[in-house]
Design a binder for these strands. Structure first.
Lengths: 223, 223
DNA sequence: ACTAAACAAACATCAGACCATTACACTGGC
DNA sequence: GCCAGTGTAATGGTCTGATGTTTGTTTAGT
């Protein structure tokens, strides 16, 4: 194995073993490179790789730290990869969403707070007939994120957020606008909010299944 | 933005725009670094980061290539991150698995081939009373992977594989062995195979829910 | 006590050298 | 003509050392 990959493994092991904890600061690059037995250049490659997947946080002029390692950090790394897979595979991604999002809504229905309901309603009010596609995408993003976060499971939220990255969303809403299907989609959002408010897990789940399937059906035709 | 991060973005954009396709070879490091306007060292950091998340494949003495970008490559990158999140958060991970795996089994029940059924049976026959924990983990890994792959959705398989990384599995089987719960777990595996063979999606789904919930219950007590 | 300048520590970047591996073309033998 | 072995060029892997930039801390002055 290359020295850089060894260094990646060693740093990872230091975190798994507990030698390094969330928030801890790593030794300076020079010192760490000597300890691990490689040059500073090679160590920097390892650190950069761990920074991209949000394991390390490098602060210039200060030092390098282990991130909080919260599940939400998984999103960024996953989104990066999902963004690159956008053609045929989009239907597979939707199949996973159609499993996860209704389940998330059902959980959310039992746990959602009045404040979260209010936030959902607020996102609806930012929309009218003149709203741009970009604003619709933004609304959609927040709407679905509010539901997944109401399910109170960071992993669930992270995976779902990554699977519905904004580049994918943008393409879909552009299509929905052309098909004049925006009204129907927004009406579905309203119905979902009402089901969540009544705590009707079963209805919320079914509504989400219908909601996602509708988009999936449109996509299947468009491709 | 730092030059290295710029380089990462530029390379990513080259892939999204189609300037670089799966399997394509990048220009040599020296040439690419001049084209992007940064030193070879800094470019190498960018390349290393993209290699870790399986976007690039670097072959020493040959060149650097864009990977196939298949969804299964998502697994490795995700596993790397999930491996680092192993304490309290394990229950959240199980909640996601309990949603996805029964759904995957239901889909698998309608699509599974006789060959895949035979492979599942074969994994059962490698096990007896004297089997070591390591071998049990290996069996479990293959068993669940066969089911997710029978669902014929690479994204579903990737996400599930990542969420049930082998480090997590190892801990659990060690616990099951101590609790003498190995027999019951293996019996559940057998029942799942039979449901899949009969194409009974509903039963397969329920069996998976029970199967995962049992482990989840044990975990909740153990923590 | 407060402020601002100086300092030190740490990461950012670069240039250039040399090593190790691989692919490929060439050559000789069959 | 075909194949195996060989050599070479191309390419990534690694190291060293220097310099720039940013940040946090200390210190001198008010």
């Amino acid at each position: 194995m290359a020295v850089t990959d060894e260094a990646i493994t060693k740093i990872k092991d230091m975190i798994i073993s507990g030698e390094l904890c969330a928030g801890d600061r790593l030794p300076p690059e020079k010192e760490l490179s000597e300890k691990l037995g490689l040059s500073r250049s090679s160590l920097r490659e390892a650190v950069k790789a761990l920074e991209i997947i949000r394991v390390l946080d490098v602060r210039r002029g200060d030092g390098t730290y282990v991130t909080s390692l919260e599940p939400k950090l998984l999103t960024e790394a996953m989104t990066f990869i999902v963004d690159l897979h956008q053609d045929e595979s989009i239907l597979d991604i939707f199949e996973v969403r159609r499993i996860l999002e209704p389940a998330a809504a059902a959980i959310a229905a039992t746990r959602i707070t009045p404040e979260q309901i209010a936030s959902l309603r607020a996102t609806m009010e930012t929309i009218d007939d003149a709203t741009s596609v970009e604003a619709l995408v933004e609304h959609d993003l927040i709407f679905h994120q509010l539901i997944t976060s109401a399910a109170d499971n960071s992993y669930l939220a992270s995976v779902l957020d990554a699977l519905s990255s904004s580049t994918v969303r943008a393409r879909i809403w552009r299509g929905l606008t052309q098909e004049k299907a925006v009204d129907r989609t927004l009406a579905e959002h309203t119905a979902i909010i009402e089901a969540l408010e009544r705590g009707d897990a079963d209805l919320a789940k079914s509504l989400l299944t219908v909601h996602i399937s509708a988009v999936e059906y449109w996509l299947r035709q468009a491709l």
